[in-house]
Design a protein around this nucleic acid. Structure first.
Lengths: 350, 350
DNA sequence: TTCACCTAGGCAAACGTTTGACACGTTGGG
DNA sequence: CCCAACGTGTCAAACGTTTGCCTAGGTGAA
């Protein structure tokens, strides 16, 4: 079913059909023929072939969305925000999953330029990805970064205000009277975790409290990695923190199990703050105090920036960072003056 | 950068380049020219234009994946399974979200046929959607159903064995000695919830236990709806169940809050089984006994069936249903001989 | 009446690939 | 020596749109 079929049925030339069906070109065709053609087209159930149209116009009305991990619950709302905003602009999301693997990312980006997507929303950038991105955006495909920035790059980005996020966590813990605090850091090649860590550390330093550090960072933001880092932290010989900031709720959950292994209670012995406010973390034991990231809005704005770039390629939108909010629940508590001595911790090691 | 550019650089005709670069056509071109052409193409960074190719070949190498709700955590693993399997077949997923709205579904399907996707994986079918589906598949686009079937339809489907799922829940509760049980049903226009309910009811009837029913079903599978149904159930004047099967973990979580409102404890007063085994339901209080659906595998197999249909359109693959497994945690317990009288329940109403 | 101008619609050339048909040159058998 | 067969590469026609340009009328003013 092509333009020509419709044209034949309507008794006009197929270019006329094309114009009658294109909202931007209807002025080129008479009111009455237009109505007639539209009626015929509808009756025949004609659907414009977008791939032919895409070939001709160079617009596929498709936007790639590249995420690290579809299974990670914090991706879902972002995806949702993106999809909704794109749909209202007549665009559809084509998705790719990198699994935080640079080779996969490169392969996927190749596919995407090959498919001539109109733009790419990249929520999976890592620190080392600057050069690939340059290559892609030199091809003329607009790229907007979401969630994770990458430095040395003029690409517009929509991110959390990570400095603020880290600071919120720190200030909350400090306000509760904690002096010895620590972080369980996310993967070191995400710009987001760097800033998050920095925001936290700065606030701690400013308050004159002490931050105990673990050399290691999480390989991926999972409960297992959170547990590993927590164990490392508890194994320190000199001192143990009374409050901990995990860079990801999943890591926080892992940290909770690690604490339980050692016979420590949260928040009585150690307070814990997570990040993201994943679904259901308000229902775990204890309900998790966490820094909420506005996932859906973040996605929506990233998509918004994308359509802005498509509409006026000359003026790239400026980056935005969204303020997270602290959600206080029950995994944080005031420091007990006599917090448990280190010995008791080490003794109860299995 | 087109075939012609590469051809010019390599000193051959562009059709030769096309063949040299197409794995299925390389036999038409001499080993040495082939190598040469490939080298030149790689050096120039040529990428075949898939939209032109798609127009010519009628294959876009794109598969639509239509889901009800990107924000629902039980979708994520399915999406992941699909994406992984598709990627290994050189296909990319184009996603659409229906929000369980028939109009949206129809609009999205329209877009999809317009884009000439190679196939559609529909994980968002509802009972009333048979006719739209017929229309689409008469257009010649392969459709495979995932998660939710729709009756009166020869479309291949990959689903949970819902009858078994319901039965597993029932048998577990019966084995714990519960005589008065009930279900919190999911939306009545999902085929999956119908079967799930039926599997449960049959097992209950077979064991001669009594199933208390609530007339209402959930409008959507959310905690709020779960809570609503649970309140309805507890408001029954005659008797209250000692065990409840919620058709969705989220509904189960809502049911828990409803129980707490009434001063009831889980599992002491009422045992509760959920469905899906969403991430983190092992960490809520009490850790949820639930029926685990193999989400990622389900997605993988749906994708598998899709590529099978693309490779041999003549022989549509037969439907498959995957066995769920019961995950016993701590929201279920043996019935206490003297379970609380109805009065105590009603008195503690706020 | 002539001419300029306008409107509405037809014509045909793209967009970048793919692919059947063909051409050309070589080889081998009769 | 001729013809068939084969291997390799070129030609050109699609695929279904979009769109600049042109034409054919029609209108109004000089």
């Amino acid at each position: 079913m092509t333009l020509e079929d419709v044209a034949r049925a309507a008794g006009v030339h197929y270019s006329t059909v094309s114009r009658a069906l294109d909202p931007n070109k209807v002025w080129r065709v008479n009111e009455v023929t237009r109505k007639h053609v539209q009626a015929v087209a509808r009756r025949m159930g004609y659907q414009r072939d977008m791939v032919a149209s895409g070939l001709k116009r160079g617009r596929t009305h498709t936007v790639a969305v590249v995420v690290p991990d579809l299974g990670n619950p914090f991706i879902a709302p972002i995806l949702r925000g993106i999809a909704n905003r794109l749909e209202s602009a007549g665009l559809m999301p084509l998705i790719g999953e990198t699994q935080d693997d640079s080779e996969r990312l490169e392969r996927i980006l190749g596919h995407l330029v090959s498919r001539r997507v109109d733009a790419i929303i990249l929520a999976a950038a890592r620190l080392g990805d600057a050069s690939v991105l340059r290559r892609v955006s030199r091809q003329g495909i607009p790229v907007v970064l979401a969630v994770r920035k990458v430095p040395g790059n003029r690409l517009p980005a929509c991110t959390n205000d990570e400095l603020l996020g880290g600071a919120l966590a720190a200030e909350h813990l400090l306000a509760l009277g904690h002096h010895r605090v620590a972080q369980l850091r996310g993967p070191s090649d995400f710009y987001s975790t760097l800033e998050r860590a920095q925001g936290f550390s700065k606030a701690v330093a400013k308050a004159g409290a002490v931050e105990l550090t673990v050399a290691s960072t999480a390989g991926s933001p999972t409960p297992d990695e959170g547990a590993r880092l927590m164990r490392l932290l508890l194994d320190r010989s000199r001192s143990v923190p009374t409050a901990v900031f995990a860079h990801h709720d999943l890591m926080a959950l892992g940290a909770l199990t690690a604490m339980r292994e050692r016979g420590l209670e949260c928040p009585k012995d150690i307070s814990l703050v997570g990040f993201h406010d994943l679904p259901q973390v308000d229902r775990v034991t204890p309900p998790l105090t966490t820094v909420r990231q506005p996932g859906e809005e973040l996605g929506r704005i990233a998509a918004e920036m994308t359509v802005a770039m498509l509409n006026s390629p000359a003026q790239p939108p400026s980056s935005r960072s969204l303020a997270p909010t602290l959600i206080v629940r029950q995994s944080t508590a005031p420091r007990e003056p006599g917090s448990p001595p280190i010995e008791s911790v080490r003794k109860s090691k299995p």
